[in-house]
């Protein structure tokens, strides 16, 4: 099986801090690939390089056989990569529906239109409403995004990732700040997506990771210290010492 995403010898440092230290990683089409690691391990930095928000110092990123190491972020989105943000990143001064509609509009490829009001493009509005329904935010559609709760913002992050119809979703701690009930719901939701999308899942919630991931990579101080099937990682001694033992 050729991997959907291949990361080879990726390096990134901030001043003296090596945040990504010679990372090699394969993500196979259709799998949920978990990434775990302690705070400051470089998980977000890795995702940012994959999405194009950060430029690596060295190494290569390949998507479906195509080198995208130097492809700008907006083009990567068009190639089928999307990410969610650990710290919620939304257009707060717009309505919930407008946020999602922008994601749909990006897929529709009709954003360079100046005449018809965006609110009147019914196929886009309907599609966006459907994504809101899927994450359970439909009744909030016309509210200002800034007025939503933290949990609802996290749901919007998921709705946006869905709406961008990306084959590869990079999810940066989607459960961050959610209560146990909400985490459970989101876990079930992602489970339903399994197979239809390829997901790179960063998560601190171990129950969620082990429930969802087919394979897991463990990142410590910017290095991948282990990769393997979820069960194997659970029982790996190094991993227990380096990370799970801390829990």
């Amino acid at each position: 099986m050729t991997p959907m995403l291949q990361v080879a010898n990726l390096r990134k440092s901030f001043g003296g801090v090596v945040a990504t230290d010679d990372v090699n990683l394969d993500v196979i089409k259709g799998e949920i690939h978990g990434i775990i690691g302690p705070n400051g391990a470089g998980k977000t930095t890795l995702i940012s390089q994959l999405s194009g928000a950060l430029k690596p110092d060295a190494g290569a990123i390949t998507l479906a056989g195509k080198d995208i190491t130097h492809t700008p972020a907006y083009k990567r989105a068009r190639l089928g990569i999307t990410r969610s943000f650990q710290i919620t990143s939304l257009v707060m001064e717009m309505t919930v529906l407008d946020n999602i509609a922008l994601a749909v509009q990006a897929q529709d490829g009709t954003s360079f239109r100046f005449v018809k009001p965006a609110h009147k493009i019914s196929h886009i509005r309907e599609k966006a409403t459907e994504y809101l329904r899927q994450v359970g935010l439909r009744r909030r559609a016309n509210d200002l995004t800034s007025s939503l709760s933290h949990g609802e913002h996290r749901q919007m992050e998921i709705a946006l990732a869905l709406a961008s119809e990306a084959e590869l979703m990079l999810l940066d701690e989607p459960m961050a700040g959610l209560g146990p009930e909400e985490s459970k719901n989101l876990t079930e939701f992602l489970l339903k997506l399994k197979g239809s999308r390829t997901i790179l899942l960063i998560e601190h919630d171990m129950d969620a990771v082990f429930a969802l991931a087919d394979r897991i990579s463990v990142l410590v101080y910017g290095r991948v210290i282990a990769t393997g099937p979820a069960d194997e990682i659970r029982n790996n001694r190094d991993v227990r010492n380096a990370y799970l033992g801390e829990e």
Partner: peptide, 18 residues
């Protein structure tokens, strides 16, 4: 809408592919 989105949150709009 894209213009206003980019004013509010450029990072998000780029992530969406704009």
């Amino acid at each position: 809408m894209v213009l206003q989105g980019a004013k509010g949150n450029d990072e998000r709009m780029v992530t969406l592919g704009f």
